[in-house]
Design a protein around this nucleic acid. Structure first.
Length: 426
RNA sequence: GGAGAGAUGGCCGAGCGGCUGAAGGCGCUCCCCUGCUAAGGGAGUAUGGAGUUUGUAGCUCCAUCGAGGGUUCGAAUCCCUCUCUCUCCGCCA
């Protein structure tokens, strides 16, 4: 959510910034509602003040044994008047709030201009795509021929966009999670965290999956309004919701492995083959809760932390600065990491690292106490995948494949694979 | 799943219809005093919002005692719904 101060006082500027990411803000309507809100709030508060002071007088008069009937007559119809004003005001505030909850974040000044992905800018590239001297297979063929990826059985058990893994691939999938968590905790300073995989609507509003993106979520048919998490970002970031963090506890850096559940509504034709786009996948997520002045450095650091995983796995990748129009709803700035997929002869997204500035913090009322002023200030939140595990597995399978259909295990995973060097038929 | 108890400020804890944004204690900050230490005295110590203002300073006002409704001139206090916590029984990885 944007700062209400900006909406009130710099509406034109805000509208212009939003237009750069393809969002058209209804300025006239907002301004109109805001003027109404202002006068109605003033009226309501005046009535409340009057009611409060008169009620106090009644209390005093009664304590002194005076006749309070004249005073009661005086306030006789105040109640209705006040109630009407309060009701109208709260409706107006709801309306304003609903609009504001739907407005995306403002892009940072360093974000490339442009509305579509062609305007994303490559910031760096690492590694050389391997030259194969045989006809390569994609991960689906490799996995099925190894008998270790099984989409048919998954479709029987559940439906499309799920997978059953077994044997070496299932183990490597698990090994990747361990490797990522170990690297981020031991070398990058994150605290390993375990969280619920089912969250309530407040948490989803906090990180802004709700109200706008409900169709992307799996909602449970339970008594409570519960949802499966689409990313660890939701439960982990909401750890700091409605809290004031002491200065000495800042910054907070969490790393967390969770499954992620996405309905993928509206993506029916896309990536239907294989493990690229599933309803359920594993992800290791990094979340940093930092002071405002530190958040852009934190974004660079966190992006480097994600890149480090790819480097150690020796997977070629490039880092893209997303243009204004291609960024997610709540991001001020986003870097996507794209890993090389030989079968697609292109780079595909494997991590997305974003600075949300105070956008999520404002919704969550997540603050830290500035010792210089003694006052709470909104934190900035920064997060990114480090990495999407299923896609990492896909990248390893395709980049490390051998002519005979076996897959060489990357060196950094040997330790986690109990000395298995190659994934083959047995 | 059954039975009961509870939710108040950073923490503990009073209040059970009016002068309570909230006693008292602890903690914390500042000041004073004591040769040091320990102790003592004083002042301060929630959050969000609106108005005013050049101002995120000051001042005025409003809201908030788990959440949401209701009763009342007036609710932390009474009523309803929900959430969470604790105790006992049952079940259970």
């Amino acid at each position: 959510m944007l700062d209400a101060y900006l909406i009130r006082n710099e509406l034109a500027k805000v509208a212009k910034a939003l237009a750069s990411r393809g969002y058209s803000l209804d300025q006239a309507r907002l301004q109109d509602l805001e003027i109404k809100r202002k006068s109605l709030q003033a009226v309501t508060q005046t009535l409340q003040a009057e009611r409060n002071s008169k009620s106090k007088n009644i209390g005093k008069a009664k304590a002194q044994g005076e006749d309070i009937q004249p005073l009661l007559d005086e306030v006789a119809n105040m109640g209705d008047q006040l109630k009407a004003a309060e009701t109208e005001l709260s409706q107006l505030k709801d309306e304003l709030n609903n609009i504001l909850m739907d407005v995306p974040n403002l892009p940072h000044e360093s974000v490339p201009a442009g509305l579509t992905e062609e305007y994303n800018q490559e910031v760096r590239r690492w590694g050389e795509p391997r030259q194969f001297d045989f006809t390569i297979k994609d991960h689906v063929d490799l996995g099925e021929q190894l008998g270790q990826l099984d989409f048919e059985t998954a479709a029987k058990i559940t439906g499309s966009r799920f997978v059953v893994m077994n044997g070496g691939l299932a183990r490597m999938h698990r090994a990747l999670i361990q490797f990522m968590l170990d690297l981020h905790t031991s070398e990058h300073g994150y605290t390993e965290t375990y969280v619920p995989y089912i969250v309530n609507a407040d948490s989803l509003r906090g990180t802004s999956q709700l109200p706008k993106f409900e169709e992307d979520l799996f909602k449970l048919h339970a008594e409570q309004e519960y949802y499966l998490i689409p990313t660890a970002e939701v439960p982990v970031t909401n750890i700091v919701r409605d809290t004031i963090i002491e200065n000495k506890a800042m910054p907070r850096k969490f790393v967390c492995h969770t499954p992620c559940f996405r309905s993928e509504a509206g993506s029916y034709g896309r990536d239907t083959r294989g493990m690229i786009r599933q309803h359920q996948f594993e992800k290791v997520e990094m979340v940093q809760v930092v002071k405002a002045e530190d958040s852009y450095q934190a974004l660079e650091d966190l992006t480097n932390h994600a890149e480090e995983i790819l480097k150690r796995l020796e997977l070629p990748f490039r880092t893209m600065a997303l243009c204004a129009g291609d960024m997610g709803f709540s991001a001020s700035k986003t870097y996507d990491l794209e890993v090389w997929l030989p079968s697609q002869n292109t780079y595909r997204e494997i991590s997305s690292c974003s600075n949300f500035e105070a956008f999520q913090a404002r919704r969550m009322q997540a603050r830290w106490r500035n010792p210089e002023t003694g006052k709470p200030e909104l934190v900035h939140t920064v997060n990114g995948s480090g990495l999407a595990v299923g896609r990492t597995l896909v990248a390893i399978m395709e980049n490390y494949q051998n002519k005979d259909g076996t897959i060489t295990v990357p060196e950094v995973l040997h330790h986690y694979m109990g000395g298995v060097l190659k994934i083959d038929l047995k």
